[in-house]
Structure formats: C-alpha cells, structure tokens
C-alpha cells in the first residue's frame, strides 16, 4: 500500500523574513527599469525595437573584427581600413540617440499614465530615489551600448595584433580613458534631455517624436543660421545643434578635431563651449525632472 500525501490548508502565513527597506526598493526599481527598456517579461512586440538597436550597435564591431581577422590572415602587410575607437562612437552615437528616444518615455510615462506612481508612494522610496534609479537604469544601458562594442573591438584587435595579444592590450591602454570619457559625454548629452521630454509628454510616441524633433530641428536650424547669415556672432547659433556636441567633444577627446565637417566644426566653436552646453542642458534637465517628480509623488 502506498502512503498517500496530505494537503494542509495553511491559510495566510505572515512574513517573518528579511526586509531590505529603501535599499531593496531602489534595487527593485533599478532592475525593473533595465527589464522595461529591453521589453523583458513583456510582449514580443515590446522587445523588437530595443533588441534590433542592440544588434545595430554590436554588429559593426563584430564585422570589423571579423574583417580584420580575414585581412591579417590573407594580407598581413595591408593596413587596416577600419576606423578607430573614436570613429566607432559615430555609429553607436546614432544608435544610442534612437534607443534613448524610445527608452526614456518607456521608463517614465507608463508609471504616470497608469497611476503606478501611487504604488511607489506607498513604499520606502523617496521621489528622488525613484527618478534617480530610473535615470541610473537608462545611463547603464547607454553605457552598455557605448562600451560593449568598444571592448569587443579592443580585445578583438589586440588578439589579431602582430605584436601579440598582451602587448597590444598594454600598448593601447591610453585609449581606455578616452573611451570612458566619450561614453560619459554621450550619456550626458542624450539621456537627461530625453528624460526631461518624457517628464513633460503624456504619451510615449509623442515624447519620442518631440525628442527626435528637437535634435533634428536644432541641427537644421543651427546649420541654416551658421551658414546662411553673416551677422556677427552667428557662429554661436551652432550651440543649437544639440546632437552634434557629443561628436565634437569626442573628436577633441581623441585628438581628431577638424576631421569631420559638421556645423559646430564649421562654426569654429571651442570644444569647451560644446562641453559646457552638454553639461548645462544635462543639469537643467535633471533639476526640472527632480522638481517635477517631487510634486508628483
């Protein structure tokens, strides 16, 4: 005779385990932000765009390393036709701009539209914690977009170096602070402004459109004012080319200023001006977003 199992109805069982308070609330919000921007644990259609952009950011690096491998195998004497670490930011910069335009509204707008902020307001979480954690999720993803392809290229090219892997790794270490600095610049230039727009707009599509519109219209307006007018000081209209500042500062960081024909370069702005514009917009946007969320929560 087999022994039969018995089912006990334990009813409601009080929780007596660990409670991590504010620290736990912050880490949950951060993890939720990362999942949300990639559509994880959400429907398939929410995953398509973010993962397509991930592929777009990574694929060129993989292709570059692959071609470099073929070149080193079949024509060791030939000079590599592929760009530097600095040049690769031109590819990832555009992809990150699109990603941020989609991700910032996804992070902030549903919580407001669907009333979820009232749940956050009943948990051990301050408004600054909420918006700070949401920003951290976005900045983490931006940093990932920027750095992962660079790491792939750094290691890939070192592995193919005629000088040997470890020597190439050491020889190129002076590129690392430049890569990190450029990543910070792109993150500051794109993310805070996108969060500001997502704080004001009530719909995700509108926020994405407004953000990209500001970038496109700003670039067009700056180009028109700089190139079509001869008024004194008109070159400072190049400040309006918000999307061009990180590229200009990146060229400065990598010591390639003047290598690209952009509105800002044509206007002859000092790279410090571009950096100041990036920092000013980032700080002003962040202050507004924090102020707004302190009123909402």
């Amino acid at each position: 005779m087999t022994e039969r199992g018995v089912v006990f109805d334990l009813g409601y069982v009080p929780y007596e385990g660990e409670r991590r308070g504010r620290r736990g609330a912050i880490s949950s919000t951060y993890r939720d932000g990362l999942q949300r921007v990639f559509g994880i644990r959400r429907r398939a259609r929410k995953k398509i765009l973010p993962w397509m952009l991930v592929v777009l950011a990574l694929l060129p690096a993989v292709v570059f390393v692959g071609f470099a491998f073929l070149l080193s195998t079949f024509s060791p004497e030939a000079e590599s036709p592929f760009g530097s670490h600095g040049d690769y930011f031109s590819i990832t910069g555009g992809v990150v701009l699109l990603f941020v335009a989609l991700a910032a509204p996804e992070l902030l707008i549903p919580d407001r539209r669907e009333g979820v902020l009232s749940v956050y307001s009943s948990r051990p979480l301050r408004p600054d914690d909420y918006i700070g954690t949401r920003s951290a999720s976005l900045l983490t993803v931006v940093a990932g977009f920027m750095l992962i392809p660079q790491v792939l290229m750094y290691i890939g090219f070192a592995a193919l170096s005629a000088d040997g892997f470890f020597k190439a790794l050491v020889t190129n270490t002076d590129e690392i602070p430049k890569i990190l600095a450029a990543t910070v610049v792109y993150a500051l230039a794109y993310a805070p402004l996108a969060l500001l727009v997502a704080t004001i707009a009530s719909r995700k599509a509108a926020a994405t459109g407004i953000y990209l519109g500001v970038m496109i219209v700003g670039a067009g307006l700056a180009a028109a004012l700089v190139e079509a007018t001869t008024l004194p000081g008109s070159r400072y209209a190049a400040i309006l080319a918000v999307d061009g500042h990180p590229d200009y500062v990146r060229d400065w960081i990598f010591g390639t200023t003047g290598s690209s024909e952009t509105t800002i370069a044509n206007a002859g702005l000092d790279p410090w001006v571009s950096l100041a514009v990036i920092v000013t917009v980032a700080v002003a946007s962040s202050v507004f977003v924090v102020w707004r969320y302190r009123r909402l929560m």
Binding site: R19, G24, T29, R41, K46, V119, Y120, R123
Partner: peptide
C-alpha cells in the same frame, strides 16, 4: 495603479520587491 502590459504575478512580485522583500 496597475501597469497593463505585464502579468498580475510579475507586478505583485515587483510590488513585494519595492517593499524590500
């Protein structure tokens, strides 16, 4: 106060995490 695009299970797990569990 409910996010519409995730399951009830996901949201309630998240709500528990927000309370520090």
């Amino acid at each position: 106060c409910l996010p519409l695009d995730i399951s009830a299970a996901e949201f309630v797990v998240y709500a528990a995490g927000l309370a520090g569990l």
